[in-house]
Simulated scan of single mutants.
Amino acid sequence: MTHDVAVTGMAWTTALGTGLDEVWGQLLGGATGLRETESTLVLRNRLAAQVPDPPADWSPTRRQVGLTAATLRRAIEHAGAPPDTLPVIGTSYGPHLDEPSGDLRRWAAEATAAAGLTRPPLTVTSACSSGSDAIAAAARLIREGAAEACVCGGVDVLTPAKRLAHTALGTMSPTLLRSFDLRHDGTLLGEGAGFCVLERLDRARSRGAVVHAVMRGSGSSNDAATMTSPDLSGDGVLLAVRRALSDAGASADDVAVVNAHGSGTPVNDHVETVVLSRMFTGRRPVAFATKGAFGHTLGATGALEAIAVILALRESKVPPVYGLSEPAEDFPLPLPVGGPSEIGEGLGISVTLAFGGFNTCLVFARPVVGDVG
């Protein structure tokens, strides 16, 4: 027996703040949390989100635990969920590039305990798909009857080693993160956390919970191409999207809005352009991206973008893509430039691309009117 999965709680910590409606309003207004810094640790750019220059006594692990616990607590409170809700936590490197002796399970357990949760967490690490994969794994546990409710998502702290590593890889922009713009020249890093509470739809209804969305499906794949670059054909990403829509019992024509990965690197933007051109040959859903506002939050990005899709479905609009003024001519879908864009009826999907060839797609639907509360 499989179960429909409801989203009954959400919380995020972003470069723009923490309140769901507060941050969403800033996104609609075209704000960004990226800011200039004098940091000597950023070799190719002078922009960062959240933590431009950590103090001398700053600990990546302490920051990761605090960020995780605070966001988990707010997600649980938003859902009115009990403390025995199962945590499923994704991260990329978390604090481990800077403090390699750290233990993923240890800090995750510490964070969940600090948030008041009583069950030991499950942990997921699949680079920048970690947050999306944690949500997909939690939904699968619920659909197959292995769990009744999960709090799931991703978290990643911005550290000096990550900024140096991306500089060495040549992925950092010397100017600004401009997803799908003719002038795109790289990404910029941020930090953040995002968690959703998922539970069986019938359970949510029986306890009178507000249902913010229904998670209809997910799909994943791996390019098996290179350690850091996607397969330029887009075949792997396309497979993940098709698997997600098949899992949802839907087609491309059912999609109203796409949250693209939108990292701002020429290679990733090219691959997404290819994939979206091949995927949407009929209906043309509106596409948007949030990394220009939040920075690229690595293992948290898929969770933050899942929440953004749910809010877009709720409001029937998407925020403008920060930094986008001249969309690439070959981009196949409508993009919001300079202001919000309306979206129609249909599903919302979030697409995540990650180092190591990981690709993940999540599918969400608006709730039934009686479930919204």
Rank of each mutant, 00 (worst) to 15 (best):
G186L: 10
R314A: 12
C150N: 07
K162Q: 14
L313R: 06
A256I: 02
L201H: 04
R105L: 15
S129A: 15
T18M: 13
V7C: 03
Q64A: 00
P320G: 07
P87C: 07
A225C: 13
R74P: 04
S173G: 11
R74Q: 12
T32P: 02
P120I: 04
L245G: 07
L347Q: 12
L182H: 11
L347S: 05
D53E: 15
D98Q: 07
P83A: 10
G194K: 02
V267L: 15
T8N: 06
S101F: 11
A111D: 01
G9E: 09
A240E: 04
K162F: 09
S130T: 12
V368K: 03
G323R: 05
N268H: 08
G282N: 11
A115M: 07
A79G: 12
A312I: 08
L239N: 08
I89S: 02
D371M: 12
L47Q: 12
I307K: 01
G30N: 05
T118P: 00
E326D: 15
R203S: 15
M279G: 00
D247Y: 02
R140Y: 05
V210Q: 15
D223M: 03
V368E: 13
A113R: 13
V88A: 09
V51F: 05
L67K: 08
E342W: 08
W107R: 01
V267H: 09
V258N: 01
G190D: 10
T68L: 11
E345Q: 12
H78E: 05
W24H: 11
T226F: 03
C128E: 13
